[in-house]
Amino acid sequence: NLQSPGQIMLYLKRSGRYFPMYERILKEEGVPDDLKYVSVAESALFMARSAKDAVGLWQFIAPTAKSVGLQVDEMVDERRHPEKSTRAACTYLRNGYQSNGSWTNAVAGYNMGHENFDDNIRFQGSKNYYDLYLNEETSRYVLRIAVIKHLMEHAHEYGIIVPVGDRYNPDPTKSVKVTEPITDLAQWAKANGSTYKDVKLRNPWILKRGLPAPKSGAWAVTL
Rank of each mutant, 00 (worst) to 15 (best):
N1R: 12
P5C: 01
P5A: 10
L10R: 15
L10Q: 15
Y11W: 12
K13Y: 00
K13C: 13
K13T: 03
Y18L: 11
E23N: 12
K27R: 07
G30P: 04
G30D: 12
V31S: 07
V31L: 08
K36L: 13
V38N: 04
V40S: 08
A44C: 08
F46S: 14
F46K: 08
F46H: 03
A48H: 00
A51G: 13
A54P: 12
G56L: 07
G56K: 08
I61C: 04
T64A: 09
A65R: 06
K66H: 13
L70H: 09
Q71T: 02
E74Q: 14
V76H: 00
R80F: 13
P82L: 07
T86M: 10
R87K: 05
A89T: 13
A89M: 08
T91N: 09
T91I: 05
L93H: 04
S102F: 11
W103V: 06
T104C: 04
V107N: 07
M112P: 09
G113F: 07
N116I: 02
F117V: 05
D119E: 09
F123G: 04
Q124L: 05
K127V: 11
E136K: 15
Y141A: 08
L143Q: 15
L143A: 15
I145V: 09
V147I: 15
A155P: 12
Y158G: 02
I160F: 06
I160T: 03
I161Y: 03
V162S: 08
V164D: 14
G165W: 03
G165K: 10
R167W: 01
D171V: 10
P172A: 02
T173C: 09
S175F: 13
E180H: 06
T183G: 11
S194E: 07
N203C: 01
N203E: 06
P204T: 09
P204D: 11
I206S: 05
L207C: 08
K208C: 11
K208D: 08
R209A: 14
K215A: 09
K215T: 07
A218V: 07
L223P: 03
